[in-house]
Amino acid sequence: MFSAHTLTGSKPEQYAQLLAQARALLAGERDPIANAANLSALIYHGVPGLNWAGFYLFDGIELVVGPFQGLPACVRIPLDKGVCGAAASTRQTQRIADVHAFPGHIACDSASQSEVVVPLVRPDGALFGVLDIDSPQLDRFDADDQQGLEAIAQAYLESLA
Rank of each mutant, 00 (worst) to 15 (best):
E115G: 12
S112R: 08
A155I: 05
G104C: 09
R91T: 12
I96F: 14
I133R: 03
S159R: 03
D132F: 11
A153N: 04
F141R: 00
P136G: 04
D109L: 08
S159H: 06
V130T: 15
I152N: 03
I152A: 02
V118D: 05
V99K: 10
S112D: 07
T90I: 12
V130A: 13
A111H: 11
P123D: 11
A151Y: 08
L157I: 13
S135T: 04
Q92Y: 13
D109K: 08
V121H: 01
A155Q: 05
D109H: 12
S110H: 11
A155G: 07
Q146T: 09
L157K: 01
R91L: 12
L131T: 06
L131Q: 03
L138G: 01
A153G: 13
A155T: 08
S89L: 10
T93P: 00
Q92D: 07
D98W: 12
F128R: 06
D134V: 04
S114M: 12
G125V: 01
R140P: 08
D145F: 01
S135H: 09
F141S: 01
E115W: 15
G129V: 10
S112K: 02
S114R: 03
G129N: 10
Q147I: 06
Q92T: 13
P123M: 05
V118F: 13
L120D: 07
H105I: 12
A101M: 14
A111S: 12
D139Q: 15
D132Y: 10
H105S: 07
